[in-house]
């Protein structure tokens, strides 16, 4: 396996430089920062005029879906709400959902994977079989069941459910990595010096697992965003939050799918592009972490 020991600042900077060498990574970062800007600017339109409020604002002069105009750059939806402000608000929701859900599932997955790998035996079997059970259940459907259990989903319960159901994949990888680290000299040395389990895990294992966990996080972010959008699209989203999936649902259910491209195209493009950007960043990070994939492989 590859060497993953990043300790100190030097290697980190080196990694960053390696990352920037990858054009895919750079492109991903650029797209992502555009979305970040969108999320920040989402607070602006409602301040200009209350009719630009993405959820509640209705243009008093419009009663049907209108194509783009000076007043509404991307047009309006079926009841006169501004599509551009919805799109901006959607970016904010995507970041919230994606990053919090991914962070939670990564933290959960890393710790459980590390525990399983480090202690082995019964702990390992229990945790990994639980992981199996969760992985076998189709996420979307379990979410549907839980949705009716929770009496409707708020965006936060969606986040928590995604986190709870998406840790097993991470924990498997982390477990494998822990297994290979466990027998390295520096861990053996720490053991010989009488360090406690907690200390070994936190000081010696965790720092070496973080980069890998971080890599998986980029993939989890995309998964979370896509799951939220899919849920909303199927009609199981949080109806009080303006997300891109929700926007698609509205176009679909109100019968504007094939006649209002100004309404149908933007949310779909945004969902696809934001997942693409996280994916690109993930790919670039993979190259940094796994030297075998680097450009200079022949050297």
């Amino acid at each position: 396996m590859s060497e993953l020991g990043f300790e100190g600042k030097g290697p980190l900077r080196e990694a960053w430089e390696l990352f920037l060498e990858s054009s895919i990574g750079k492109a991903g970062l650029i797209i992502l920062s555009i979305f970040a800007l969108m999320a920040i600017f989402s607070f602006v339109p409602p301040m200009i005029d209350p009719m630009y409020h993405p959820m509640k604002g209705v243009d008093p002069e419009i009663t049907t879906s209108q194509p783009p105009s000076l007043r509404h750059w991307l047009g309006t939806d079926f009841m006169g709400r501004d599509i551009l402000s919805q799109l901006l608000a959607g970016a904010r929701v995507a970041f919230l959902v994606g990053i919090t859900a991914a962070l939670m599932s990564i933290i959960l997955g890393t710790f459980l994977g590390m525990l399983a790998g480090y202690f082995g035996g019964v702990v390992d079997t229990l945790l990994m079989r639980t992981a199996d059970v969760i992985m076998v259940l189709p996420t979307l459907l379990v979410i549907l069941v839980l949705a009716s259990l929770f009496k409707g989903l708020s965006i936060w319960s969606i986040v928590i459910i995604i986190a709870l159901f998406r840790w097993p994949g991470v924990s498997r990888v982390i477990r494998a990595q822990t297994l290979s680290l466990k027998n390295r000299p520096f861990v053996e040395a720490a053991k010989a010096l009488g360090a406690s389990h907690l200390r070994i895990m936190m000081r010696h294992l965790l720092p070496n697992l973080v980069p890998l966990a971080f890599l998986y996080m980029t993939f989890r972010v995309t998964a979370a965003i896509v799951i939220e959008a899919a849920l909303a699209f199927l009609g199981f989203g949080d109806p009080t939050t303006v997300s891109w999936g929700m926007m698609l649902q509205w176009v679909w259910k109100t019968g504007h799918m094939f006649k209002a491209p100004y309404w149908l195209l933007p949310p779909g493009i945004c969902i696809s592009l934001i997942t693409l950007s996280f994916y690109m960043i993930g790919r670039a990070m993979e190259q940094v972490l796994d030297p075998r994939l680097r450009k200079d492989w022949e050297g």
Partner: peptide, 19 residues
Amino acid sequence: LTIASLVTHTIFLPWLGLL
């Protein structure tokens, strides 16, 4: 090839289907 597969791999499925 890499870029093409990244793009198609991340496209939002129901939206693609409808298009």
